Amino acid sequence: MIDISSYQSGLTQANFNKMKALGVQTVIVKLTEGTTYTNPAAAQQIRFAKNAGLSIRVYHYARFNTPALAAAEARYFAKVAKSLGLSSNTMFYADMEEGVTATSDVVSNLRTFFNTLSSAGFSNHGTYTGHGYRYCDQIVNVLGKSRAWIAQYP
């Protein structure tokens, strides 16, 4: 499994085909950040990944630190996902690494984010974080270890 964002916008269909041939099975595409940013390469990246026979997951780079912002960011994420025709069984990750999100209410805010996504028809959730994130363990416990994606760098 690999994740990509606009930083990898230069990837071609041949690149995705090669990834598949090398054993990559899943691509996690950054769709959104906050309430205004959409990855301009997301539609093409999703199309190339699907054409290569890869499964698709998506993530939202969270900036919320209140329930109101969590709900607004989830609505934005869902709106973009719907515009791209993503199915309701697509796995939606909340990328929890931004310092502004690390408040004592982070778990409550994350639950609001996921509840809002579910209300929009997207109820397959996961979390992304790293061991350096102040509330890493609490974030992992929201959905359990099987739905947590922990950053690892060689």
Rank of each mutant, 00 (worst) to 15 (best):
N124D: 08
N15G: 14
S9W: 08
V58M: 07
G130Y: 14
T26W: 01
T116W: 01
T12P: 05
A94P: 05
V100C: 09
V29G: 06
P154H: 09
I46P: 12
S104Y: 08
Y37E: 01
G10D: 12
A94W: 03
V106I: 15
R57E: 15
F16T: 05
N65S: 13
T101Q: 10
A52W: 13
D95F: 03
Y128W: 13
A72E: 04
G34L: 08
N65I: 02
M19L: 15
N39T: 07
A151C: 08
V107F: 03
E33R: 02
E97C: 06
Y153K: 01
T35W: 00
K20G: 00
A41H: 04
Y59D: 00
F77A: 02
T26D: 07
S5I: 00
I28N: 14
H60S: 13
N65V: 05
Y59C: 00
A52L: 12
M19T: 03
H125E: 14
I46T: 02
K50G: 06
M19S: 03
R75K: 15
K145E: 14
L54C: 10
A52I: 13
L117G: 02
L69C: 00
I4W: 01
L69Y: 08
Q13P: 09
N39L: 06
P40G: 04
C136Q: 12
I28K: 10
S87N: 13
A71C: 02
Q25N: 12
T35C: 03
D105I: 00
L31A: 08
M96I: 15
V106W: 11
A14R: 09
F113R: 07
Q45G: 10
K145I: 08
V29H: 03
K82R: 11
T112P: 02
L86E: 05
T12C: 11
G85T: 04
I139D: 00
R111V: 12
A81D: 01
A70G: 03
S146A: 15
A71S: 15
Q152M: 05
R63L: 14
V24K: 06
E97H: 09
A78D: 01
A49N: 04
Y153V: 05
S55W: 00
E98G: 00
H131W: 14
N141R: 14
I28Y: 04
Y61T: 00
A42G: 05
G23K: 09
V106Q: 10
G132P: 00
I150W: 04
F114A: 11
N51M: 11
T36Q: 07
T66Y: 09
G53Y: 03
A42H: 07
S6I: 04
F77M: 07
T101P: 03
C136F: 15
S123R: 14
Q44M: 10
G144S: 10
P40N: 05
N51D: 15
S123H: 12
V58A: 08
A62W: 12
N15T: 11
L143Q: 09
L31Q: 05
H131N: 14
H131F: 12
I28L: 12
E98R: 10
T90Q: 04
T103I: 01
G99Q: 12
N109A: 04
I4D: 00
N109R: 09
S88G: 09
A78W: 01
N89Q: 11
